[in-house]
Design a protein around this nucleic acid. Structure first.
Lengths: 212, 212
DNA sequence: GGATAATTTGACCGGTTGGTAAACATTACA
DNA sequence: TGTAATGTTTACCAACCGGTCAAATTATCC
């Protein structure tokens, strides 16, 4: 009979569930390291421990694999921002946003690099997602603006505040090689994330003149 | 006679001078957008307005082209940090460092992305340069530490301070697509760099409790 | 202007890469 | 247990890509 490609089946098999997981895990490894063009299906297949045609049975194209990854990752990636609470205490909210973003940089550096690679390329495959992102940021920027108006934090551009938090935290994932090279072997342990957290908290708490 | 490859000749012709410039300019365009693997010699040749074999007459390999670019760019890229003056006023030094880095992000975004791409890959072709970078940063970190000790700025980790300045400024070059998408068409003019400068200056001046 | 060196081009090559075809093996399920 | 659907493998292909070659063209200098 005609081969019902995994992607087309309505119900997903146990095997499909498992294998797709393994593949995406491997793909994340390879894509985040080498970028979309730099990654090869053979590489991903090898990391996933299966043959190339077998892999292509689950994801018909390299593009499809990448797409699936981006979709999955983008969702969890924005969770910290979603948790940003309008009714919360500005000091606590900003502090914990920084902390969560730093934890993600530490625990999910591949996801961060996958994004970075995509944005660097000009984000051809995430234009629609960028629109969602914009809406979310707009919403949170309004929250920050309200805090400013209420005198809870110093005057500042909420958008650039958010950009700066993204930049400083993701830096430890995306530029890990550079960070490690500069800090040297002795200071490159996992402790660097705590040092970073301490520094950033101080910077933002004083910088925004947060009145707790 | 045996062809004296451009790279091997002792004296460089006028044409060599010109063409190599054109090629590197084109290569910067393509490499910064697509990364090393994503870039193709044909692409670069087309942008440079010459045939592929002609281009390869000046740079024998893709690698050589990339190397030449990295070498050239890295040098100018670190200039702002080199200007960091130990005897200067901390407030002015940090402010102008931020300003210079932001100007570079605005005026040389391709150079920034070339780097970002390289670091993301794990920086295979800049390991030695990273060592120079480390020495330079060590030196400047010492300057900052002295300022802290003299009570001129608040207590802070000088390395993470430098990282954060790199991150926040280069963000506007490397993540340009995202920044523009979030700010929307109306606020994405060149004015965004001034807004960023204003925000960052405030953040760092207050955040570091600089006593001018 | 002519000899010589420098530059440019079209044709080509071998390796890689994304993806396919079809036979074969395994699993799910009646 | 039989059979249809699902999963896996081997062999393969066409396009692309980095790079070469030798011949043709142009610039340089006496």
């Amino acid at each position: 009979m005609a081969i019902p490609r995994a992607a087309k089946t309505q119900r997903r098999t146990r095997i499909q569930e498992e294998k797709e997981e393994v593949i995406l895990e491997a793909a994340l490894d390879v894509f985040s390291m080498h970028g979309f063009k730099g990654a090869t299906i053979d590489q991903i297949a090898e990391v996933a421990g299966m043959s190339k045609p077998n892999l292509l049975y689950y994801f018909r194209t390299k593009e499809a694999m990448h797409r699936a990854l981006i979709d999955r990752v983008l969702d969890t990636w924005l969770d910290p921002l979603r948790e940003f609470d309008a009714d919360g205490n500005p000091e606590i909210e900003i502090k914990s946003y920084i902390r969560r973003k730093l934890e993600m940089a530490r625990d999910f550096p591949r996801e961060s690099r996958l994004f970075a690679n995509e944005i660097l390329r000009g984000g051809p495959s995430i234009v629609e997602e960028l629109d969602d992102l914009r809406k979310l940021v707009d919403e949170k920027a309004e929250v920050i603006r309200a805090w400013v108006k209420a005198g809870k934090i110093g005057r500042c551009d909420p958008y650039h505040l958010i950009f700066s938090i993204w930049a400083t935290t993701q830096h430890y994932a995306d530029f890990d090689v550079q960070v490690k090279a500069v800090l040297g072997p002795t200071r490159s342990g996992e402790g660097r994330f705590e040092d970073a957290a301490r520094f950033l908290e101080q910077l933002y708490m004083n910088g925004l003149q947060v009145k707790a």
